[in-house]
């Protein structure tokens, strides 16, 4: 085979790969949109589910999902900022920094169902919290922590050394340098990471299904230690009753809403990442 032909074949193969990948995404999105749109209307979005989701809407599922990720954000953000800042500002030993990175990546690699089992054994059984949305938030926060820490660390680490040194030579203490120079940049980065993390967390079923959610008969929780209903677990429950056409219809509808939420978070993260500039570019 001559070179030219080989080049062409290789190019075609890569284009083929691109086409297949895009096709899969497009097909999934259009099937969900097509089937989901039929279920979607005002009362579906703003009324409670009835008859185990066969009738009614998904209001409490949307609220439950949003509540859990809001809790997860509040828990995750300070932890991530603290970890990233201590890693970049205080950890001087290269070896410990490497170990820290390895551990963060390790946490990222743990399958989500393991987090669920951990939550069940540690919180629900040992600490006896019962099924609780707040425990679900904690578990989701731990799960997205690596994503947020890495994004924060990246943006903190991109601050040129000269800004820290300039602030130090002006008589600021280390803590003031962190507060005035490092943190403003770190927060911008961690918000981007958080949005990416939330896009993943909002769709997770496995870690929350044993510890945070009920399948039905639940509305807005009044305390930290009550179960909620969420979109992904609702979809799972409806899909298990797939023989009933109305249940399936509602499952498609809920899927479309969930997909829209994920897209919203991802797109916002994308924009905020584009807007994120390092201190020296500002």
């Amino acid at each position: 085979m001559n070179r030219e032909l080989l080049n062409k074949c290789f190019m075609l193969a890569t284009w083929g790969a691109v086409a297949i990948s895009c096709f899969i995404l497009l097909a999934l999105v259009s099937v969900i949109t097509w089937n989901g749109a039929a279920a979607l209307n005002f009362s579906f979005l703003f009324t409670a589910a009835r008859r185990f989701g066969m009738a009614g809407g998904i209001l409490y599922q949307i609220i439950g999902s949003l509540l859990m990720i809001a809790g997860a954000s509040l828990i995750c953000l300070p932890l991530a900022l603290g970890t990233a800042i201590s890693k970049s500002e205080y950890l001087k030993s290269r070896r410990i920094r490497k170990l820290c990175t390895a551990l963060i990546y390790g946490l990222n690699g743990i399958p989500s169902v393991i987090f669920g089992i951990f939550g069940l054994i540690f919180f629900v059984n040992t600490l006896n919290t019962g099924i609780s949305w707040f425990v679900g938030s904690i578990i989701l926060a731990i799960m997205i922590l690596p994503t947020v820490v890495l994004a924060t660390y990246q943006s903190v680490n991109s601050i040129p050394k000269i800004y820290r040194e300039s602030a130090l030579t002006l008589g600021l203490s280390k803590w003031q340098v962190i507060w005035r120079v490092v943190l403003p940049q770190g927060i911008a980065g961690s918000l981007t990471g958080l949005l990416l993390g939330l896009a993943r967390a909002v769709g997770e079923t496995a870690p929350i299904m044993f510890i945070a959610t009920a399948f039905s008969g639940v509305d807005i929780p009044g305390t930290l230690f009550e179960p909620v209903v969420t979109l992904p677990t609702h979809i799972l429950a409806l899909a298990q009753q797939a023989t009933a056409p109305q249940a399936l219809q509602n499952a498609w509808g809920a899927s479309l809403v969930l997909l829209s939420l994920v897209t919203l978070f991802s797109v916002t993260a994308l924009f905020s990442r584009m807007k994120l500039r390092t201190i020296s570019q500002r």
Binding site: I162, Y163, S166, T169, L170
Partner: peptide, 13 residues
Amino acid sequence: TEIGMVFQKPSVF
């Protein structure tokens, strides 16, 4: 604060 320093590259905040 008693011994100030100015660097090679201007680094305004």
